[in-house]
């Protein structure tokens, strides 16, 4: 097995396996620990700006990644979007989202170090997640900025690489041949480690977006016998 296979095929599949099975395992065994672990109570002034900038930046960045990776160039060609126009939009969106994430994240790190209360609640897992996030954000932002001239042509290299990966027909050479620069490669490879840590960290809250709130009745009633949402449904109910 070549190094190329290991880092562009084996690692991604290991990471995806850990990610998915880890999430399932955590959900089933530790729904108590499954939460955002907010520290807004302990420090709210910086948090107000940092968290909002960071999270909206992240949402935009995730959206950009999904579009960039999942939509083939042939599709945008078909609807008459020129590659130059696409790239201009992608760079503007990508750089602004990346900067928002970077600034928000920097503020969050500052906050965590500056305020002893927040620092006191920081677990080792938080440190690991922060380190990997920092890595992903910095390399991602650098990759975007260094590719303003579109030398990498990622829509013909990295994007198809991911699509092939998701179709279980990996073509690792897409990542090594062509103009894929080192910073792209480092970003792609490094972020898999974040995914591997994800299920075991506070990042799981990303999968708890409470959309059900929008259609729920305001007051929730529950019979005593249901101990928790993950618990079994009762056979009998009193009060009904």
């Amino acid at each position: 097995m070549t190094g190329e296979t290991i880092i562009y095929v084996v690692l991604p599949y290991v990471a995806m396996t850990v990610f998915v099975s880890g999430l399932i395992w955590r959900w089933r065994t530790d729904s108590y620990g499954w939460n955002a672990r907010s520290t807004q109570l302990l420090e709210g002034k910086v948090q107000r700006y940092a968290s909002v900038i960071f999270h909206f930046g992240v949402l935009a960045a995730i959206g950009g990644h999904v579009l960039g990776i999942l939509i083939p160039q042939s599709w945008t060609d078909a609807v008459g979007v020129s590659e130059e126009f696409y790239h201009v939009i992608a760079v503007i969106g990508g750089v602004s989202a990346g900067l928002a994430v970077f600034v928000g994240f920097a503020m969050l790190v500052y906050r965590r170090l500056r305020f002893p209360r927040v620092k006191a609640t920081t677990s080792r897992m938080d440190v690991a997640v922060f380190a990997l996030l920092a890595f992903g954000i910095v390399t991602g932002l650098l990759a975007t900025i260094t590719n303003i001239g579109d030398a990498v042509q990622y829509r013909e290299t990295t994007a198809p690489y991911f699509r092939q990966l998701f179709l279980f027909n990996p073509e690792p050479e897409l990542m090594t041949s062509g103009g894929v620069t080192l910073i792209f490669q480092v970003h792609v490879v490094g972020v898999w480690f974040l995914y591997m840590l994800w299920p075991f960290s506070r990042l799981v809250h990303a999968f708890s977006v409470p959309v059900g709130y929008l259609r729920r009745s305001p007051i929730v009633y529950r019979p005593r016998t249901v101990r928790s949402m993950s618990g079994r449904r009762p056979e009998t109910r009193i009060g009904r």
């Binding site: 708890s208 709130y213 529950r222 005593r224 949402m229 009193i238």
Partner: peptide, 11 residues
Amino acid sequence: CPSGAMYKREE
């Protein structure tokens, strides 16, 4: 509560 984690007991 966005999560629906808070509730009133029916009984």
